[in-house]
Design a protein around this nucleic acid. Structure first.
Lengths: 238, 238
DNA sequence: GACCGCAATATGTCTATACATTAAAGTGGA
DNA sequence: TCCACTTTAATGTATAGACATATTGCGGTC
């Protein structure tokens, strides 16, 4: 249990907050008081309080002091895995099949899915990921060929486009939308009745302001779960 | 655009990484080199690199230096709102109805949902959240009465238990599971055909090691979306 | 009393320095 | 060659002090 000093102070203050000893709105002792209390420098106290501030547990106001905050909208960290890695982690054999590959200019419908200019060059892919020979996930992807020109040369017959892109095209931001639907048009490809529930993840990836790719992953049935954990702060060392 | 120095260094290094100029595995200049490069003290450089390390962009090894990491499983920040706030943000009128309220000792089935000892005192609640008079979300909740004894006195007729708990019971960790199902048993309460797809969010909340509450939220149909954003680092100051 | 300006004060950031920790690299002997 | 030991070079954490910045509240003026 070799704790650093600032981590100890942070944990100590956090304990008083979560135990209710310092309720929301309570003013935390000033830095110089904590300095005396823990017998350390102000930098160290400041580091601990700064972490608590970034973690959202307290609010720091100049001149006024630091105050215990009421937890607001909670945010959780959602881990989104690569499909192949996900299948492997289930101990199943991974399979991949390219269903279609079309190069075209962006239509109005495409532009609802990916933010590109009208007529921008796109590669539209459909493929299926299998686990132990059974359909695991259906993937529909658009790749913006201005952002990833090398994709035009790739066949994607042997390698899923997700892994290919991650290895080659840098990106800076992504947005995920998660919803439930019924299998409908995906029913055939997934070997399901059309009314079966599916979990759909849409991911849009950007390079600065430019859209790189948009992908729709359809997972059949109630079997697939996404797991998100609340992160108490940005400080969990890896 | 008043940036602090260490934030500027961090952004600078991050830019080189995401642009591909410094590929995965590349050794980042040593702290003392960056010190010379940016004309600042080692503490400041160390702070910037420490943040990048915690953000997972680089790996720091004593004596060896800091190295660009290959992006692993990407993690996104999922904002999970209070149901009432969610309905309000849609511009709809919020309604709430308590469907059932039972106090009991934990059964084996309860213990699959919430991590408590056998026979622990629980409060089991079912309620419905409405938007403009139509069912918006069905909530099934277990409250551990050892962690939240005051809940035994609350009626939950007028106030949804989520808001009540957040205001009173401190918690430290939460886990969310997201999946798709068909409406099934929830069909009646939600006024849906049993085959309709639903998005289900299960949330377990803890106080240290002790379970506080477990809640299952069932959102009908494809209308409801969860949105998660990739966070380049844990450092977004509030 | 309402308003404005100023001083007091708590936090925010940075520097320079010191020492601790750890792991790579070098050294020497069996 | 291989192993144990020492050296060294990098990061990790802490200190004290300095200055910057924001905000509260006081006091003076109109």
């Amino acid at each position: 249990m070799n704790e650093t000093l600032h981590a100890r102070i942070r944990a100590d203050v956090e304990a008083r907050i979560v135990s209710g000893q310092w309720p929301p709105g309570h003013r935390i002792p000033y830095e110089h008081e904590l300095t005396a209390l823990y017998g350390c420098s102000r930098m160290t106290v400041s580091k601990a309080l700064g972490e608590l501030g970034r973690a959202g547990l307290i609010e720091r106001r100049r001149k006024a002091g630091s105050f215990v905050r009421r937890p607001l909208a909670q945010s959780a960290v959602l881990e989104i895995h690569d499909v192949a890695a996900e299948v492997a982690s289930l101990g199943a054999a991974y399979g991949y099949k390219l269903l279609s590959r079309v190069r075209r200019r962006a239509t109005a419908r495409d532009r609802e899915r990916i933010a590109v200019a009208q007529g921008a060059p796109l590669l539209a892919l459909a493929c299926r990921h299998d686990a132990d020979g059974r359909p695991f996930c259906l993937e529909n992807r658009l790749i913006h060929l201005e952002a990833a020109p090398e994709a035009a040369q790739a066949s994607f017959v042997d390698q899923p486009p997700g892994a290919w892109l991650i290895a080659r095209i840098p990106w800076t931001a992504a947005e995920h939308r998660i919803r439930a639907t019924s299998a409908d048009v995906a029913a055939d490809a997934l070997d399901l009745p059309p009314s079966a529930p599916c979990l759909v993840i849409e991911r849009r990836t950007f390079q600065g302001d430019r859209a790189v790719t948009a992908v729709t992953l359809t997972y059949p049935g109630a079997a697939h779960e996404l797991i998100a954990r609340f992160s108490p702060g940005p400080l969990t060392t890896r």
